[in-house]
Design a protein around this nucleic acid. Sequence first.
DNA 1: ATTTTTATGGAATAAATATTCCACTTATGC
DNA 2: GCATAAGTGGAATATTTATTCCATAAAAAT
Lengths: 280, 280
Amino acid sequence: MTKDDRELAPPRDYAALREMVIARWEDLPRRLTQVAEYALGNPDDIAFGTAASIAAKAQVQPSTLVRFSQALGYQGFSDLQDVFRSRLRDQVLGYDERMAKLGAHGQAVSRASMILAGFADASMRSLSALRNRPDEDAMDRALDLLEGAETIYLIGLRRSFPVTSYMAYALAKLGIRTLLIDAVAGLASEQAGFVTARDAAITISFTPYASETVALTQQVRDKGAKVVAITDSVFSPLAGLSDSWFEVAEADFEGFRTLNATMTLAMALTVALADRRKAG
Amino acid sequence: MTKDDRELAPPRDYAALREMVIARWEDLPRRLTQVAEYALGNPDDIAFGTAASIAAKAQVQPSTLVRFSQALGYQGFSDLQDVFRSRLRDQVLGYDERMAKLGAHGQAVSRASMILAGFADASMRSLSALRNRPDEDAMDRALDLLEGAETIYLIGLRRSFPVTSYMAYALAKLGIRTLLIDAVAGLASEQAGFVTARDAAITISFTPYASETVALTQQVRDKGAKVVAITDSVFSPLAGLSDSWFEVAEADFEGFRTLNATMTLAMALTVALADRRKAG
DNA sequence: ATTTTTATGGAATAAATATTCCACTTATGC
DNA sequence: GCATAAGTGGAATATTTATTCCATAAAAAT
């Protein structure tokens, strides 16, 4: 079975694995074909099941699963199973083509470009999650609150400041009156002090929630302004302080959170708001 | 903790489980709250991981996971894990329907969420382009220039300001000295005036290139500082003014340019730089 | 302040799961 | 048809993984 040359490079992504199995279909022994057939037909079961349960369903012995895995070059069944699991993860996020691509040319790259690729991937994951969440009416609810506002106050410091500063720029370009709380000269509270019940605020914060952001949000809320929040979990202090809020899940790469999903949501919110005002 | 009445009906589906955890959030002890937060934030990890690996990521003991599960009325961790797994299964199955819906395009979806989807798609296109361009050594060249810099000056106004402000935040967190030219009080030129030949600058600008950004870049260059630029074409005035530059192509949606590729590149540059300095 | 209850970390144990091994069968080459 | 090689089932074993237990710490009640 010309083991030596095959065993060196077991595919790490499902697409390649599938191809390999199909290619070698012919020269696999009887029971192993049986396993191959079951595996390709019920990839989910492979991902979730135990060797024993899968073996039963495929009508073979557990040991056959191990042999199958090893024949393909994997260390054992668990090793093979990892591939099926990663496939599931990716499918949930919605793109297995790009993983195939990743496996195809994933070598001889510098550390720097690996970091870049890592961030790009993390970002795409975040965006995919954002896109696929059918948050249908969260968006509409937020727009209802923002549409009639006289001035929109933008609250977001530290890590969130890039987002609010972007919105300030874009909304201003679109002719929507905003006030960016930038805390210049330590005047954050004074900047927020002019808010009235005819205004609305967009407030953005993530773990660990900057206490100043929370305080400012509380402040504008007390004055009767509507509050739309963008944050990262139900447990965020902003969730309780807002009339409508978005949950954004940012993927991370080596502990550094991406900002893209938040940024994209902000952009969409900005344009959708302008769109509504024009229509209205 | 009034165990008896709760333990009889542990939810079998993820949605109900999630609700239950949120409801009982308050009266859970410290470590269990920690687990709850991690679980709801990273449901995929719970589905696939082992008790030990999850415990490590959530920074608790494996036994705490078991206790958490039991506090919720499950028999043990494995029992709880089943719920998370079934969620994944369902999501996978629901994916096809979702794609079909997407293909049928635009009926019964609100205008707002179409805008969101549009931006998400545009962003993913930008990122995909960024990722697949094998700009191998542009990154390394830039890092060479930045590595030895005493202070890194960040130049980027208007649309690019979110990016520079993000870098200022992230680099500061990583212990790298920066100076963000924010043009507060109209002092941009004065802020940039302190630059020396031992410093470096990162300058960012896109069509239509803000004249002030170009002028500032020229200024720091004249003083002998190294310049790394992020811009959108060879014809950019920044290309000629820099020692190394990145070309970033941002996709647009209905005329509005996304900022994600730039943001992601900035993030990668930031982390890669910190990585180098640590290594060096 | 003192006792009692509850929570926690970490090691010990139990359970499950994968893997290896070997006797036996089937196929292949001579 | 005989000898050799490859394949297979199932039990034995090794490993991994969840769970329980206990000593200690923190909180709550008295």
